[in-house]
């Protein structure tokens, strides 16, 4: 992160907008069924490894790449668009 990025990040946290965008993302991911898909992926990984006790880090390492690939483009686009416009209007003020 550059200094500029850090400032933008801090401002997003301070105003609460980071949480607002996070909440929007969370809702979209639930709506489109992504969350359920990821849950199924996790279940499969746990089942495959039934013999050895699987930890969160192992689970995250196995599931994250596939989960990322499953995020629909429409969701990415909407978020990107909204964050971009938001940052630009903030800059003008």
């Amino acid at each position: 992160m550059t200094v500029n990025n850090t400032i933008a990040h801090q401002r997003l946290v301070l105003t609460g907008d980071r949480e607002r965008f996070k909440e929007l993302l969370r809702r979209r991911l639930i709506e489109c069924g992504w969350r359920d898909q990821v849950r199924m992926l996790c279940r499969d990984v746990v089942k495959e490894n039934e013999s050895n006790n699987i930890t969160f880090d192992m689970l995250a390492a196995r599931v994250t790449p596939r989960a990322r690939a499953l995020v629909p483009d429409t969701v990415k686009k909407e978020l990107l668009q909204k964050i971009k416009t938001h940052l630009l209007t903030q800059k003008d003020q």
Binding site: T15, D17, R20, F21, E23, L24, R27, K82, T85, H86, T89
Partner: peptide, 13 residues
């Protein structure tokens, strides 16, 4: 006003 991108309205659905 361009209300579409107000952060308050982000979650308004």
């Amino acid at each position: 006003a361009d209300n579409n991108n107000a952060p308050e309205g982000v979650c308004e659905d």
